[in-house]
Amino acid sequence: MQQTLQIRCDYLYCICVQYFLKQCMSDLIDLLQCQQLVWHGNEQLSNVERVSTGIKTFDEYLQGGLPKHGVIDIQAPHGIGEIRVLLPYLKQQERLTVFINPPGYVNGHGLFHLGFDTTRLLVVHPSNDIDALWSAEQCLKSGACSSVILWQDRLAIHQIKRLQLAAEQGGALQFMMRNNTSSHLSLPVSLCLKFAAHNKGLEVSINKQKGGWSKSRFVLMLESYWPELYQPPKADKVISLSEHRKWVSP
């Protein structure tokens, strides 16, 4: 008897609360927000320390930039500009940048003339995947490297977790360059980006971002960051004499 009464009381109380909420919903939410008892999920971004990518629009889409340390998963076919987009960030760094298992001979010449300091570049060629992960971990936690770029397709969750810890320990960023991502396993990374080729730059989709909501997809224009490369092909190489004179003596 007493129990049913109790339940009824609760029920009544609920109705009262609902009614009350309807009456002064906005006031209450304001009050609760003020006391930090209620919060919005998308307001938590400020917790994650971010570092600029060096590309303004990219920073805006990423709500401030790349995480300061952690693991970033980049899914992209090789050769569409996936390193180019990171170069402005890599150029800012003062500690070592390590390339592990790059798909070719790293051309210091190209990186150098783009403004990259090649004295801070290390290239590591381990003989197998396990050694590659091991060297990435060592580089990350040594504190001597600011970014480690590893080309490896197959990764496991526990490996990513280890790298994540190492990256936090050494204050470094780990980039995972993955060409074909056959498994749809969600890896515990700080940021997961997917790049696709585009005429004027890259088509980027943010698959996952720690401390962020956005699942956006956008086109990143890279023309202004390397105009020499993106310079449109001249349709006709013949120019008029007057135009030529204008070029020679402006």
């Binding site: 090649t118 570049l121 590591v124 936690k141 001597a144 320990q169």
Partner: peptide
Amino acid sequence: QHKGGSAASLISILQAKLGGDAIQGVEV
């Protein structure tokens, strides 16, 4: 505290495990 180890000690560790030729610098 922030910087931790130095680049030289990192390279010694990598070279000891992977062999001397596996780690390279780039020169222009």
